[in-house]
Amino acid sequence: LTLMPMAADAEVSNDAAKWIEKFTGGRQPAKGKISLDLPEIAENGNTVPLSINIESPMTADSHVKDVLIVADGNPNAGVATLSFTPLSGKAEASIRIRLASTQNVVAIAKMSDGSLFTEQKTVKVTIGGCGG
């Protein structure tokens, strides 16, 4: 594999805003409820562990429905959309993601009552995972 040259501190504008707009319907999410766990420095952008945990009783009346994860410095901002149900028991998940360069990873959670919460983390990437 050869690596494509990429800016070290990329503030690449991709379609992150569009993904967020579509998910939130333009409403402003509040800070809180989400704990988003990513390494501060990722040596290998091809596989960066991401864990998310959202505070919620996960009952039929009050649970987390969908969680959008976007990365603002990848060629395409979309990473994943997680869909929970009360049967999930906990609003908790782990995945492994690709990050092309140093950038922000943003999570937005939509609750069963329609409220929105957000959290974000900056990950410094040593070797990009956009690889060509």
């Binding site: 990473v79 994943a80 959309t81 997680l82 869909s83 929970f84 999930s88 993601i97 990050l99």
Partner: peptide, 9 residues
């Protein structure tokens, strides 16, 4: 549980 995945996975 379900998950829509993008190329960033």
């Amino acid at each position: 549980f379900a998950c829509a995945l993008e190329p960033a996975i």
